[in-house]
Simulated assay, not measured.
Amino acid sequence: MSFFKKLKETISRQTESVTEKFRQGLEKTRTSFSEKVNDLVYRYRKVDEDFFEELEEILIGADVGVTTVMELIEELKDEVKRRNIQDTKDVQAVISEKLVEIYQGDDDFNGELHLQENELTVILFVGVNGVGKTTTIGKLAHRLKSQGKTVLLAAGDTFRAGAIEQLEVWGERVGVDVIKQGSGSDPAAVMYDAVQAAKARKVDVLLCDTAGRLQNKVNLMKELEKVKRVIEREVPGAPHEVLLVIDATTGQNGLSQAKTFREVTDVSGIVLTKLDGTAKGGIVLAIRNEMNVPVKFVGLGEKMDDLQEFNPEQYVYGLFGDLIDKEAE
C-alpha cells in the first residue's frame, strides 16, 4: 500500500470535524508552502541539485528552521537515490513521508496530556506575554470540562496588569473557578492556595498561569523554580506537565523563546497558538526536531473548540490534502 493510501486511511478513521479544522487552520501555510512545492515540481523535469536548492529555500521560507531543513534535504537526497526516483512529482510523496516521520516513532510525542487517574493533575503554563497563554488556558479548561473533568484555574501571573482579570473572564465563560490574590502578590503563594483548594474540592485538573517576562532570565528562573517547588511539595510528582505557549506567527523568534524557557524549566510540551494566522507553519517541525519536545496542542482559530491536539497525519494532510486525495485514489 502506498504512503498516500495509508495516510488517507489513517485520516479517514479520525473525525471529519478535526480534519476540517486542520485544513482550514493551515490554509495560509498550505497556500504559501504547498503551492510553491507544486510549482517547483512542475517546473523541473528531473531531480537534480538545482531542484534541491530551490526546495531548501521554500522550506526555510516556511520557517521549518535551517538545521531541520539541512537534515531533511539530506534525508530526501538519500531516499531519492535509494528509490532511484527520477520524476520530481514522486518527490512530493517522500517529502510528506519525511514530515510525518519527524513526528512519529515515539509514544511520548503523540500530543496527549499526561493526566493522572483518580488523582489531581497539575499543569503549569509558561511563555512570554502576548502569545495567547491565558486564552489557551481557558480553551484547555473548556476542552477538559467537555471531557467530563472538573477543572480549577490558578492566576499565577500577578505581574502583568489585567492578567488576573483576563483569566477570571475565561473562568466565567467556561464555568470554572479561579484562585487568585492581589496584583503584585507572590505567585508561589497563589499556587499554594490553588493546590489546597484543588485538593479540598477534589478537582481533576489544576491549570496554572505564570508571568511571562523574559527580560530578566534570572528572576524568571527563580520565580518558576519557587512555584514548581511549592507545587511539588504539596503534590508529589507535580507539575505533571509544563506547557510552553508560543505564538506561531513569530516564527524563528518563537523557537528562540522555546530554547530560553527550556533553560529555565523542564518543558514537557509546546502549545502553538495562532497557527491559522501564519504562512510559516513549518515552525512545528523546527520545534519538534531541534528541541526534541512535542507540540501537544495547536490553536487553529478564535473559537472555544479551536484548540486541537496536534496530530502529525492531520498536519501533513492540512499541507498536502489535495495531493494526498488525488494520489490515494
Rank of each mutant, 00 (worst) to 15 (best):
E172G: 13
L120K: 01
D157W: 03
S12A: 15
R83H: 10
I231T: 07
L275R: 04
I137Y: 04
V91L: 08
I102W: 01
K228A: 10
P294T: 07
D48Q: 05
F3E: 10
I60D: 00
V267Q: 03
I95N: 05
T210L: 08
F33S: 02
A258Y: 01
R233C: 06
R262T: 15
V128W: 00
D276W: 04
M304E: 14
L55W: 01
N216T: 13
G321T: 11
Q14A: 09
I246N: 02
V131P: 00
E35W: 10
I283P: 00
L275H: 03
K21T: 10
F159T: 05
K217V: 09
E57F: 09
I11R: 01
G254L: 04
T68M: 06
G171N: 02
H240P: 07
R83M: 12
Q147S: 13
V284T: 07
V267L: 03
I11A: 09
D322V: 11
D107I: 13
D78R: 11
S96N: 12
P236V: 08
K145A: 12
R13T: 14
F310S: 06
I246R: 00
R82A: 15
K149R: 09
N289Y: 14
R288K: 14
V128N: 00
E165C: 07
L244V: 07
R83D: 11
L76A: 07
E329R: 12
A163T: 02
G156Y: 03
L26I: 10
A198P: 03
D78I: 14
N84V: 11
L272R: 00
